[in-house]
Computed example of a mutant assay.
Amino acid sequence: MIESKINGWIRKEILNQSLYTVNNLNTPIKLNQNESPIDWPKDIKKQFLLYLHDCVWNRYPEINGENLRKKLARKFHLSKNQIIIGKGSNEVIQAITTATLSSGDIVCHLSPTFALYSLLSQHRGAKIIQSKLDYEFNVVLDDLINKSAMAKLTFIANPNSPTGKLLPIEIVKKVAEQTSGLVIVDEAYIDFSGGSAIPLIEQFENIIITRTFSKAWSLASFRLGYGIMHNSLALEIQKCMLPFNIDSPSALAGHFLLDHMDHIKKTISAIVDEREKLAIKLNALHGVKAWSSRTNFFMLETPLSPSVTFRKLAENGILVRDISSYPLCEKVIRVTVGTAKENKRLYKIITNLL
């Protein structure tokens, strides 16, 4: 039986982990994965398909997303040699952990935060130390600085997930000053908040910034992200990417969106506006708290338990994320901001549950 041989074939770091899964309930309204609720307009899709029609399909794509790196470099006034492209920022993070971590190395991250930092680090046999947030989900600065000083890698999601809170750049700066390791600033949601750490790249050789096209840029289906860092770091981490990892349609989509910044800005503005309006309405309900957020999602408390709230919403056609198993999140669910129509439906169901 193959089951008896698995232990000899697969590393213990993998055997000891659970498979990363998401809830795939089929509901009309999907507010569980922090995707953009706004798809590309049909006229922009048609323009993009013309680009794709002229793309050569029988040849490998350009190596390392070369032209997209150049375009991003112009946007941020950087060198293309400071940028690497991945299938989503997750692949960039995976390449970073592959390039840097050996068994027993220490990795520091906030708690609660995005689960992938721990998962990918443990793949490499790293030891995880967590800097726990306080009960208002704020960073305990001395604790973070002390623990990051021991770490080879420190992950800071900014804004953080699942809390939605934005850290002042001064905190990132202080951490980078106090550690000899690398500081990875995951800016997946930075388009909703501002306050990027990109200006620190020139000052700190140990800062890496990761970003994605999946959230504000409405491109989750294509899988496209990138990392920004010192060019010497980029050269080494690129070695841990597979050759030709960025397919031509994804690279073209990135190019195309960078030429449609007006649409992106309108999308971001609409989502932020909906977030604020929905939070105000929910916070006016007795026993309900929508936590302040600088992202396209927020944590939500109701008088019901998270599991009951999750189930009742699902029964009414709305899928959210039950994060009550996360540290400090025992009372909350996480809700992605939807369209105006979806948010109106969510508010109505929450009101009926009270």
Rank of each mutant, 00 (worst) to 15 (best):
L319S: 12
S305V: 14
I44G: 03
N32K: 08
H286D: 11
H77W: 13
A340M: 12
R345S: 12
I271M: 05
T179A: 11
T163K: 01
L300W: 05
V288K: 14
D262T: 03
N352I: 11
I84C: 07
Q122Y: 07
S193V: 07
T339I: 02
G317E: 00
N16H: 02
W291K: 04
I184G: 13
M150H: 06
L233K: 09
G194H: 08
E66A: 08
G86S: 01
F155V: 10
S193T: 05
G194W: 03
I201A: 00
P162V: 09
R211W: 06
I349C: 07
S193P: 01
I171W: 05
F204C: 05
K71D: 10
K12D: 05
N158R: 04
S121P: 07
L233P: 03
K341R: 11
K152A: 05
V183F: 03
E62I: 13
T27H: 05
A216N: 13
T100S: 08
I350Y: 00
Q203Y: 07
T267V: 08
L133T: 03
N245R: 09
R211Q: 11
D273M: 14
V175Q: 00
A126K: 12
N23P: 00
S89I: 03
G125P: 11
N206M: 06
V185D: 02
V308R: 01
K42L: 12
T267D: 06
F297W: 15
L182V: 10
A149P: 01
G65M: 01
R69F: 03
A253E: 11
I83L: 04
T309M: 00
K266W: 02
E315I: 03
V183Q: 12
A290V: 08
S4H: 10
S292T: 05
K42W: 07
L72Y: 04
L78M: 14
